[in-house]
Nucleic acid binder design. Structure first.
Lengths: 228, 228
DNA sequence: TCAAAAGTGTTGCATCTACACCCATGG
DNA sequence: CCATGGGTGTAGATGCAACACTTTTGA
């Protein structure tokens, strides 16, 4: 018989205040001693729930994030993906059928800083932005692999529709260039980058400038969302 | 509760003798009167079976195709995807739990002509190569949508690792160009195409030529598979 | 000898890359 | 007045598109 637990797991990227690309991880209490483990946000799908709807619901529950760009990138179906010893304690605590296999569908989502400010709420205890290069190597289940796969997907599918979801509604060209450099993992030439951007019709210069910076203030740009 | 039936469905493309790109569909007897319906090959996943292994097993069962390049491209989780009236008769005949939801994972696979010659076997009654532009519009479940999605994936992800699976082990550059033209849906310039190919290190010219053709015989080329 | 597909180079144009200095601001 | 990042143009190299004729074979 082939009844299987199905879940969704979300790779969520965002900019933090210090202008570094980060991933949102949740903390899970994995035993009665209160030990914790990091994981990406995800949970079992409800009956009669569409994959995308489920991803949105779960993300909202776990992180209060809402209205995201969410892109399915891959299903993970290794029958042993939840069988690692390190994961059994948590499964036993929270799952009705901890021994049963779980297939998961990975979603990628990108959030603007301005959409999500961690608060001193109950939630703030449960989730944390982590630098991309400081992801713990012992995340729950196969979450490290899911993250790698999501990032690889992002790098190969890079476009403005995706990028625009990472940036605040007004941004400087340096911020934009920074995101490209992180995602492509290479330095870009400032002048060439700006020449290319000027060809992209959905990115418009505004008349506003940065304020309060100790250098020449940059003009702010914006995406014409309706044209993306 | 979230126990869900999980299946895999395969979009299989190949070249037929008349050099047209075709898709392999299976015929399903959908009621006791013997009415048939077309579908892409797919079935429920076994317990403790990896997605890819399942896709291979099912494909072998249904089509005797073996040793394929198989690429997962998308999961389809609409809770109503098997609820259409047209699909109930078959579900009632063959499924233990016809009312239960089925989430499916789509795999794309491309086969060489030489690997699969339809025979007058029991199988030949069950499967058929259909021209891409002659796919019935009333395939089982959401299979029309799965095919569209698979083709879109193929066109946007076009690379030699994929293409090499459509061609015989020795092929002419015209055959290669023809495949690109079909998949990209545009004419390519012969000289420019050949210039580009010559830069691709995994494609090697052999010393063999076509035989028995009523024109200048073409040199045969081959992929260095181990480098793909 | 004819038909059919194979094979082959060059040129102009567009695109990309590399590169260095002055400017506006806050501290 | 200093440190910081913002902003700008050009020249040379590279890559891409367009284009037509000769060759080899089987019939």
């Amino acid at each position: 018989m082939s009844l299987i637990n199905l879940s969704v797991d979300c790779v969520i990227l965002g900019f933090d205040d210090d202008q570094k690309l980060k991933i949102l991880l949740i903390k899970k209490v994995i035993n009665k001693k209160g030990d914790i483990q990091y994981a990406i946000p995800g949970d079992l799908l409800d009956n009669d729930e569409d994959l995308l709807s489920g991803a949105k619901r779960i993300l909202k529950n776990l992180t209060s994030l809402n209205n995201l760009y969410l892109k399915q990138f891959k299903a993970f179906g290794d029958p042993f993906r939840t069988k690692d010893v390190k994961d059994q304690s948590w499964l036993n605590m929270y799952r009705k059928n901890p021994k049963e296999r779980v297939v998961t569908v990975g979603y990628l989502s990108l959030v603007k800083m301005e959409d999500y400010v961690p608060q001193a709420s109950s939630f703030a205890l449960d989730a944390e932005w982590i630098d991309l290069d400081k992801i713990p190597e012992d995340l729950a289940f196969d979450h490290n692999e899911i993250i790698s796969s999501g990032l690889r997907y992002l790098r190969t599918q890079l476009d403005h529709k995706i990028i625009s979801n990472l940036l605040p509604s007004k941004f400087t060209l340096s911020q934009l260039q920074y995101i490209y450099e992180i995602l492509l993992d290479e330095k870009l030439d400032k002048r060439n980058f700006r020449k290319n951007i000027s060809k992209i019709s959905v990115i418009k210069k505004t008349k506003e400038k940065q304020e309060g910076v100790a250098h020449k203030p940059a003009y702010l740009y914006t995406y014409e969302k309706e044209k993306l």
